[in-house]
Write a protein that binds this DNA or RNA. Structure first.
Lengths: 247, 247
DNA sequence: CGTTGAGTTGAGACATTTCAACGAGCGTGG
DNA sequence: CCACGCTCGTTGAAATGTCTCAACTCAACG
């Protein structure tokens, strides 16, 4: 987290200038990168990158995106959710391994791929930050492999909610996890039931039913399809399979 | 692929000196790295890294390893297979996201973590190679998310076999994929039925049954549990769900 | 006000798991 | 040498969790 004076105006006013890869750059580095950047807006449902194409490189300034892989017969698996401050795209690789869609209105801060790679070669902090993102993505992907390969439907739903909780805690960043163990959390679900199903390897019907079961168990409240209140994080963690139920 | 003269003796005799991260290093870089390296042998079943620990950094010279994640109640998911020339461990991260076990006799070329990271900071080719490995791992993990979330049991088995075929083609590296589409391939299965099950999110019984089904379909022959002959790659690809069956 | 899409709920179907038995290989010790 | 115990892999029959198919509600919208 650098706090210089002469940062570019676009960056000074940017909601994520102290988050994501930009947080690791000095003023002059930020200027250099800013001169290469171009903002672009996308509409909900718009496809930003096609699997197999060269794809876009840039920061997510605002909005929600999904990365998904598709089978020949149309089955889909969402492999990643992207939010504000996440980095989109794989510099170094010339082939996107998933299709990227905007779920909400999305604002990106994009770069020309070659220019970005040249800049990254000059700015150790930038390339380190990008690679750190890739490493974090890998850890998340493996966490999800455990979910998809081993967890039952209700555990998958609980794990998904837990991930949203953790994300919110990381963003607000004011407390640590244990302090909030007993606080009620009201969550905005950023994606549809269909997208949740494709993310968790389930069907929309099962997603709906398991949300209901978690409600009946008293773990959550469902205000509407997009708004969930978590009553007890420990019980949500138990439902997610993170603690052995010695029942 | 550099071909210098004054490479360290250990590297000159190393089976993977022209593969993995070492392939991208000049003689003097190789020397520098070699001076930091230490060979270590592991026995089948031995645990090399525990999930959550700092872990080992190094090259796999020879042998087969699995990376796995475990749930509180003992359920396991294998998230990666490592073979000769693969890179083990996550420099930059101080927490291994999975447990690593030797499946066969394993020889590693390990490095002190801090020294390796310092070396990587000096050698752009090295850090690029390590990051490229991480990127490739991410692509594989996402491929597996699609498998675990969407594919049925027989497709998972077929995909697994296809991955072994592809690996063999990459290693032998003499032909391209299409040239071998119709060739019979005899594969050595490097892991047990239980490990296959944990890799594919199935049970050993289902793995056994689906191998039998692929045999009955005439796609493969089963010499014994560890040796499979692939009769038709196109049909294996179809069984794996990579082509839409317009039946 | 009819249409459309998203979400929920129910009943039955189905794929995979679970439970159980069995055979082959293999080292150990009598 | 054979009996024994053990693990690994295979096979069968029953149980079960999730999917499929279908109906219905609700809100948004032209």
């Amino acid at each position: 987290m650098k706090t210089p004076k002469d940062i570019p105006e676009a960056c000074a006013n940017c909601g994520i200038r102290n988050r994501g890869v930009c947080a690791h750059l000095y003023a002059e580095e930020l200027s250099k990168l800013d001169s290469l950047s171009r903002r672009r807006r996308y509409r909900p449902g718009e496809t930003i990158v096609m699997e197999g194409s060269r794809g876009v490189v840039g920061n997510v300034i605002d909005g929600t995106l999904v990365e998904r892989k598709t089978m020949a017969d149309g089955r889909e698996q969402i492999v990643s959710l992207l939010f504000s401050a996440d980095f989109l795209g794989t510099p170094l690789s010339n082939q996107a391994d998933a299709t990227v869609d905007a779920v909400s209105d999305v604002m990106l801060c994009t770069f020309d791929r070659d220019q970005f790679e040249a800049a990254a070669a000059d700015l150790p902090g930038l390339s380190a930050a990008v690679h750190e993102q890739a490493r974090a993505e890998l850890a998340l992907a493996r966490e999800w492999m455990l979910l998809l390969g081993q967890k039952r439907a209700i555990e998958r739903i609980a794990t998904f909610l837990l991930r949203l909780v953790n994300r919110r805690l990381n963003v607000t960043c004011l407390h640590n996890f244990d302090d909030l163990m007993d606080d009620a959390q009201t969550l905005m679900i950023p994606i549809s039931r269909r997208q949740i199903a494709d993310f968790l390897g389930l069907t929309t019907e099962t997603v709906s039913r398991k949300f209901g079961e978690l409600r009946d168990l008293g773990v959550i409240d469902i205000a509407d399809a997009r708004h969930i209140t978590v009553h007890s994080l420990p019980r949500l963690r138990a439902a997610a399979g993170f603690v052995d139920e010695l029942a």
